[in-house]
Every structure is written in C-alpha cells, then in structure tokens.
C-alpha cells in the first residue's frame, strides 16, 4: 500500500467533497461556495448572505460528508461479510439488518410515535434496535442449531429477512396512509441530515474501521476456508462471530440514520478487489475511499439531477449495476 496512492485518494475525496458541496438546486456559485467554506477558516473571506451560509454549512456540507462516511461504512461491512461467507453475493444486509431496520422504522411510522426520544430521532432509534434485535435473533437460532457452516447462517438470515419483509408488507397494507413514508424510508435518503447525524455515523466509522483493520489478517485467512484457517491457528468460530457482530452493528448504525442503501456494500469490495487483490489491509483502505466517493456521488446526483429529489438507493443501483457489469467484463482478474 503506497503512501502516494493514499495521498491521491485523499486529495480526490477532498476535491469531490468541495465540488459536491457547491452542487445543488439552490443557485450558489462555485466560487461563493469555496469562499463560504474558506470563511470558516478565515473571517476576512466571510460576508455572504445568511441563507447561503446556512445552505452550504448546515445543509450541503454535512450531507456530503455524511454520504461519504456512510458509503465508507457500508463498503467496510461488505468486505467483512464477503470474507466471512466466502460468498460474492454477501452484503451488509444479508443477515437481516435491512429488514430488521425497516421493521423498526415501519413500527415507528405506523404507531405514530413522537419524533424524538431524549433528543434522538425515534425512527432512527427504532430502526437501529430493529436491526440489532434481528441480527441477534439470527445468531441465536444459528448458535442453537449446533451447525458450524456459514451457509446455514446465511440461510437463517435470508429466512428471517423474508419473514420480516412479509410482516412489513402486512403492516403497510393495514396502514395504507403510511405506505409512501415507509417506502421512501426503505429506499434511503440523506435529506434533512445534518451535523449530529454525521457525528453519530463518524463515531461508528472510526470504531468499525479500527476494528476491521486490526482484524485484517483474520479476514485474509478466513478466505482460505474454515479448515485451512484452523490449521494456521485461527479460532475461526470466535473470530467469525466478532466480525459479524461488529459489521452488523456498523451496518445497523448507518441504516438507522440513512435508511436502506443497497449496492454499495455489495459491489465496492468486488470493484476494489479487481485492482488490489484479496488481501484485506489494502482492500479495506481503498474500499473506504471508493465506497465513500461512490455514495457521495450518487447522493449528489440524487439531489441535483432532477427538479425533485430521488431516493439515493435508486441512483446507486441505476449507476452501480451497469458499471459493475462493465468491470466484470473488462477485468482480466476474477472478481471472486
């Protein structure tokens, strides 16, 4: 992992953050945007209208940064899941994180819960607990089934996910007035997100990134299969449990704030693996950059391409899927 590459990706990220902060439906010139941002560092450059400063500093900048950090988190989770399951179709939502979060959010919407609880957004709280409880139910069933294979865990996760999706459908049918709210929540959005949301997700990211980097060798070895991993000295069942718990909590934390944003966690590790190979230290660092840039770009398109805002999950799929297929066709390396 060369320092120059890290520097280049950091520089690209900063430039894109500045450009995307300048982009939007409100008519604020690029130069003004930079001056407003620079004005925070040097007061002699300030002097813009209060509304422009609010749009740039309190709406666009935290939103752009949040989409970047969220993309980085989801990509990191994807790396962990794909290593544990040795399965190219694994993504952060395969153990029921997304369906559990959606159930929590649905309940808060259909039960018309108050908007906040102890100053925290109740839908986000319910989504977080929904995701966490679902993952722990999946784990409890798996551990009690006395099975060791990851495919059993995968199947339990899929079954529970489908069950919860059915429950959500019933709730939506019984509460048809709320269908639109629930549907839009499940497509994910960064609208109306600000600094407190960014602070929360940043904390998740720092903890998750440190944990995953600390476990980079464990993730490498897991790709060899459970028997090989044990021959090399890995306590695979313990390591697997730790990684799945942390990545699931990380995914739950992000989803509870942003809603369900698919595709990032699935394709980012695949795309990065084509260029870096499978060793996780490199893979995860570059996945963080690429996942962040991908989601930040998708959100900028979602909020500025049309006169109305698109759910970001739609943009990630529309642009991500063809790009991913192109990479698979053009790459000399096997994606997995």
């Amino acid at each position: 992992m060369k320092k120059i590459h890290i520097f280049i990706f950091t520089a690209i990220s900063i430039i894109l953050i500045l450009l995307y902060t300048a982009a939007g439906t409100a008519d604020i010139a690029f130069l003004d945007t930079f001056k407003i941002l620079a004005g925070k560092l040097n007061s002699s450059l300030s002097g813009f209208s209060n509304s422009k400063e609010i749009i740039i500093l309190n709406i666009r900048l935290p939103r752009v940064l949040l989409s970047y950090i969220s993309g980085a988190c989801l990509a990191l989770c994807g790396c962990g899941y794909q290593s544990v399951f040795k399965n190219p179709l694994s993504d952060p939502f395969i153990l029921g994180v997304s369906s559990g979060a959606a159930l929590g959010a649905t309940l808060s919407i259909v039960l018309s819960m108050p908007n906040t609880f102890l100053g925290l957004n109740i839908t986000a709280l319910m989504a977080f607990f929904g995701a966490v409880i679902t993952v722990f139910v999946v784990f409890a069933i798996y551990e009690n089934s006395q099975r060791n294979s990851t495919s059993s865990l995968l199947l339990i996760g899929i079954a529970i996910g489908q069950f919860i999706t059915a429950v959500i459908s019933v709730l939506m049918l019984l509460n048809q007035d709320n269908i639109k709210d629930i549907y839009f929540w499940t497509l994910g959005s960064f609208a109306a997100k600000s600094w407190p949301h960014l602070a929360v997700v940043s904390v998740y990211f720092v903890i998750g990134f440190c944990f995953m980097m600390h476990n980079s060798k464990n993730l490498d070895i897991m790709l060899l299969g459970s028997q090989e991993a044990q021959y090399l000295g890995q306590d695979i069942y313990k390591v697997r449990r730790h990684i799945l718990v942390i990545t699931s909590l990380l995914a739950a934390g992000v989803v509870s704030v942003t809603g369900i944003i698919g595709f990032i966690g699935l394709i980012t590790p695949h795309v990065v693996r084509i260029f870096t190979g499978p060793m996780h230290k490199k893979l995860m660092v570059y996945s963080v950059f690429i996942g962040g840039i991908f989601l930040m770009t998708a959100d900028t398109i979602a909020r500025s391409a049309l006169k109305f805002e698109l759910p970001v999950g739609i943009v990630t799929a529309i642009f991500g899927a063809p790009f991913f297929i192109y990479l698979i066709y053009s790459s000399k390396r096997e994606v997995l």
Partner: peptide, 12 residues
C-alpha cells in the same frame, strides 16, 4: 478462486 499471490499464501 481469490487472486492470492504465492507470497500472500506463504505469508499467512
């Protein structure tokens, strides 16, 4: 199926 190099495999 992963693109491990010989060095990666031995390093593990």
């Amino acid at each position: 199926n992963f693109d491990f190099t010989v060095f990666d495999i031995v390093l593990m």
